Structures are given as C-alpha cells and as structure tokens.
Simulated scan of single mutants.
Amino acid sequence: MIASTGSNKAEKDHPDNLSLAGDGFDTVIKAKAAVDAVPSCRNKVSCADILALATRDVIAMSGGPSYAVELGRLDGLSSTAASVNGKLPHPTFNLNQLNSLFAANGLSQTDMIALSAAHTLGFSHCDKFSNRIYNFSRQNAVDPTLNKDYATQLQQMCPRNVDPRIAINMDPNTPRKFDNVYFQNLQKGQGLFTSDQVLFTDTRSRPTVDAWASNSQAFNQAFITAMSKLGRVGVKTGRNGNIRRNCAAFN
C-alpha cells in the first residue's frame, strides 16, 4: 500500500501488481482514517489487519463465505518493487511451479487450488494471456487447452497488437460473484491463464477441480482454511513492524 516516491519504486508498482485497482487501496485508507477518528482506537489497528478484514468482507459481499480473521498484524517497514520478484505465481506456471511456490509458504496443493479460485472475481490484462490466443508455443496458434469459442471471444476483446491497458474479466460467466463457477469454467476450457487451466489438465489436480465444481460448500470450507493459513504468512510482530498513521506512507 506504500506509495512510490521519486526513483524509489514501491511494491505495488511492480508490473505484476498493476491489475490491483487504485480505488481498492483508497478504500483501505478510508477505513483506517475512520478507525483512527475514534480517539480510543487511534493507532490501535494496522493497515495490514484492515486489508485482511476488507478481503474477507468483499468475498462475503460477493456471495462467498464469511470467516473469522486472525488479527494482530503490524505493518511492514519496507516496500520495494524488487521484493515482489519470485513471490507471486505467474500466469504461465505449470502445476509443479505452483506447488513449489505455495509450499515455500507452508501451503499445500489443496490450498493452492482453493486460493486460485479467487480468480472467480476481478480482472486481468491482455498481455498476461495473449500468448495463449495468438502465438502459443511460438507457432502462431491457439492453446489447445483453451475452449475455441472462448478463445475467439478473447481475440475479439484483445487485439493481436496487445494493448496492456485492456481489462478482461477473469471469470467469463459470473465475474462479480464469488462462487465455484471458476472450477466449472476450467472443466470447459475457460481458464484465462495457463496457471488456471493447468489445474484441470494436470491429472494430479483435476480430481479436486471436479469435486469443487459440483460442491460449493466443500470449496468454501477449503477456501476458508487456505485463507486462514495464507493470513499467517509473513506476519510482522514486535520490532519487525509498527502501526502506520497513513497506510500509503511509513511513519
């Protein structure tokens, strides 16, 4: 949430984070200001905790499950674009790469598949998947794991001369609802990223996709478990952090 200053590029301005909506940051900053406006609450709640709570609330408001959020995080003391390198899954990742990245943070393959379903909401940009619809394997072809009709729709929305500013819904069917349709989309070849579709094409993860495609309750419970574990990754306590007065700047 830290804003870049001069030549010091902050974490949120790394290219992998450019699809994060600016008004989302504004919402967290406004929530922080509202909490701190209450004298007895001033400087008691971190921006990190507010972000975790806001995540839970937007999921619930979009039709997904609500869950208890563990609190007590402090805000970090540094923010650099370079720190993002190797920390986020790339849209071209295969299952081994996904599992390796998540395992490094104490998360299982089941957790990874559940968290991937966050792509039931939000959007991406054409340059993140254009290789699948125009030049797959450098053969001027469409990725064969991609539904042909869906590929045509994506080509109509994303010109061959890629405009990275064009935003595309991650879920082509229920883009504003948090649901298990994400997994049903994968069964139909409608995963936007390679890292989405591989969850169905790889036989090691397909059974989980199939199970959750037909059982939203089981998926919701797995998602809650995975989010709780994710919420414990990299938590700052003691001298490793503080409570910011302004979420966009260090104290």
Rank of each mutant, 00 (worst) to 15 (best):
Q197E: 00
P65E: 08
D26Q: 11
Q97D: 10
S130I: 09
T5N: 06
A104S: 15
L101D: 15
I113A: 10
D49R: 00
A141C: 02
A213E: 00
N220Q: 10
D13I: 01
C126V: 01
R56H: 03
A249R: 05
K148V: 12
S214G: 06
L199A: 08
T145H: 07
L74H: 08
F250A: 04
K229E: 04
M61W: 13
T92K: 14
L146S: 03
Y134R: 14
N140H: 13
G63L: 11
S195L: 04
N169V: 13
G6D: 08
S137P: 02
A218W: 01
K229V: 07
K9R: 09
S228D: 05
N94K: 04
K229T: 03
G63V: 10
G189R: 01
R73Y: 05
R244Y: 15
V233N: 09
E70I: 11
P207Y: 06
N96F: 13
S19D: 10
V142D: 11
A82P: 01
L154G: 05
R239P: 07
N240P: 10
Q184H: 05
T80C: 04
A21C: 06
S19E: 11
A21M: 08
S83T: 04
A3E: 10
T152V: 05
A117L: 07
Q184F: 02
N220F: 04
V198Q: 06
Y182A: 09
D49Q: 00
S228C: 12
S228A: 12
T27A: 12
